[in-house]
Computed example of a mutant assay.
Amino acid sequence: MSEFGASLSAYKIGDFYQSSLTLADGTRYVIPSMTTYDATFDYRTDVMGTKTRFRLGVKNFTDERAPLADRYFGYFSDAHTDYGRYMYLDVRASF
């Protein structure tokens, strides 16, 4: 088993129009696409006879913000999240 590991992933939501909003010239408002990137770094070791994995993760590491829309929070929350960048530490032990 490898002691170190890493991953990189991307999540893209394509552009779409907001049916509840029509601009003054009669065109529909298009909400642009959004792409976020996540990364994780793993370290596996043995702690007191237990296989343990430490994972440091960064969600949305480019700090992409949700595109503007005419909705409750200023973005289309049915499709997007607007958490911004955040990091986490996950420790998992197998007995």
Rank of each mutant, 00 (worst) to 15 (best):
D78N: 08
L8Y: 14
G57E: 12
L21N: 11
Y88G: 10
V30D: 14
M1P: 06
A10N: 06
K59D: 11
P67I: 00
M1Y: 06
F54M: 07
F4Y: 15
A10M: 10
D82S: 04
D15A: 10
S2P: 15
L8M: 09
T52K: 00
F73N: 04
T40Q: 11
Y75E: 00
L8W: 14
R85Y: 07
S2E: 14
D42K: 13
T50P: 00
P67R: 00
G74T: 06
D38K: 01
T62N: 08
Y86S: 06
R92C: 07
R92P: 00
F4A: 12
Q18F: 09
D25G: 01
S77G: 12
V91S: 02
L68R: 13
S94H: 09
Y43A: 02
L89P: 02
K59Y: 13
A39Q: 01
T62W: 06
G84P: 02
R85F: 11
D78Q: 08
M34Y: 07
E3G: 09
A24V: 06
Q18E: 15
D46G: 06
Y43K: 03
T35Y: 11
H80Q: 02
F73T: 02
A39G: 03
K59G: 06
E3F: 12
F61W: 09
E3V: 08
G84N: 05
A6I: 10
D70F: 15
G74P: 07
D70M: 11
R65G: 02
K12Q: 14
P32K: 00
R28T: 11
S9F: 05
S2D: 15
S7G: 15
A79K: 09
A66R: 01
K59I: 12
T50W: 04
D90A: 12
T22F: 09
A24N: 12
Y86V: 06
Q18A: 07
R71V: 05
D42A: 13
S77P: 07
D63Q: 09
K51N: 13
K12T: 15
T45E: 05
F54N: 03
T81P: 05
A69G: 06
S94E: 14
R53V: 12
F95R: 01
